[in-house]
Amino acid sequence: MKLKLYTLLLTLSILNCTAQDTTLYVGTYTGGDSEGIYKLTFNTETGALTNKELVAKAENPSYLSYSPDKKHIYAVVEHEKGMVSSFKITDNKHLTLLSKVSTHGAHPCHVAINKSGNKAIVSNYTGGNASIHTIANDGTLTEAFQVLEHNVDSIVSHVHSAEFYKNQLYVSDLGKNAVYNYQLENDKFKLIDSSIVDLANHAGPRHFALTNNGKFIYIINEYSSSITVGQKTEKGFTKIDEDSTLEADYNGKNSCADIHLSKDERFLYASNRGENTIAVFKRETNSGTINKIQTISVHGNWPRNFTLDPTGQFLLVANRWSHNISVFSVNASTGLLKFMHDTKISEPVCLLF
């Protein structure tokens, strides 16, 4: 009887430990020691990162995105001859290459999938355009059915990110200093607005976060180290707030990188490359305005992408030049961060739970 009880308790303990573990995929640059896409085990109770393993050899997979059902992963190939790849996730969480197609532009740096999982858009930084692809039922990518060209005048385009929202498509162009809005019409995306909200001169919009209801947009500006807040109107967005991501006494060079809302949308997080910090903002959920409440060191150099874990209790930062991933705990009540520990990995630039 005691043996059966012990066996039952041991089984429950193992199941509980398994339930606390989730997989983190890491996109990297492969000019040094890295060979492609890695996976680590993340414990959502302790914040521990373990079991680093190469799961797909790939060239500069600097941005990764899931399919909605999390059965496939899409990765850019950041190179002069831009490509985007699709992978099937196997039973042991490794990745099997399914397809690789041209992005029709150099140095793709971002890929996003629509909610239905049947379209992908890839942002080409040097190419100054974005390619849109159909995704088949098996996860394979077709050749681009549309390319959004932004290099149409003397101002050099640098498309940096894009997101689908219902039948809308928003595209952030750092070079043009604008966020574009396209709308799906007759299976193609039609340009509705080439600048949805006023931005300061040479702000450099890089990434953005939309609220779930689409009412507010938060744009992180690489050059001006600021966040522009827009509120949805009938004719696009109107600017309602703008805040610096830097401490008032910081005088060095800085380039903002990534931005994310907490799951409950009460807090906003932004990464600073140069100051090497995460800026934390409290968000007024009704008005949409933000107020900075914390600046915390990333315990590394040149933070690129960062992410919140599935529980919302941890925030992880990919520090490219210090070759580490830093783990922070998140206070659910205040949104404030506390550094816990870090894990070494060569040139991490994208984190995907």
Rank of each mutant, 00 (worst) to 15 (best):
Y6K: 14
L10S: 03
L10D: 01
L12M: 13
N16Q: 15
C17G: 07
V26S: 00
K39M: 14
L40G: 02
F42M: 02
A48S: 12
L49T: 00
L49H: 00
T50S: 11
N51F: 11
K57L: 06
A58L: 14
A58K: 04
E59Q: 11
P61Y: 04
Y63L: 12
S67V: 13
P68E: 00
E78A: 04
S85R: 12
D91V: 13
D91Q: 13
N92M: 05
K93S: 12
L95Q: 05
L95S: 04
L97T: 02
S99T: 12
K100C: 06
A106C: 07
A112T: 14
N114T: 10
K115C: 03
I132M: 09
I132P: 04
T140S: 15
S154W: 11
H158N: 09
S172N: 15
L174R: 01
K176L: 13
Y182C: 09
D187N: 14
L191V: 04
A200S: 08
G204E: 08
R206G: 02
A209E: 05
T211M: 10
Y218T: 05
I219M: 02
I220Y: 00
S224A: 09
I227P: 03
G230N: 02
K239F: 00
D241C: 09
L246G: 00
N251K: 15
G252Y: 04
A257Q: 02
I259M: 10
H260F: 11
S262L: 07
K263Y: 13
K263S: 09
D264P: 07
L268Q: 05
T289N: 07
T289Y: 05
K292V: 06
K292I: 12
T295C: 08
N301R: 08
T311P: 01
V317S: 01
V317N: 01
R320T: 02
V330Q: 02
V330Y: 00
T334S: 15
K344D: 01
S346N: 14
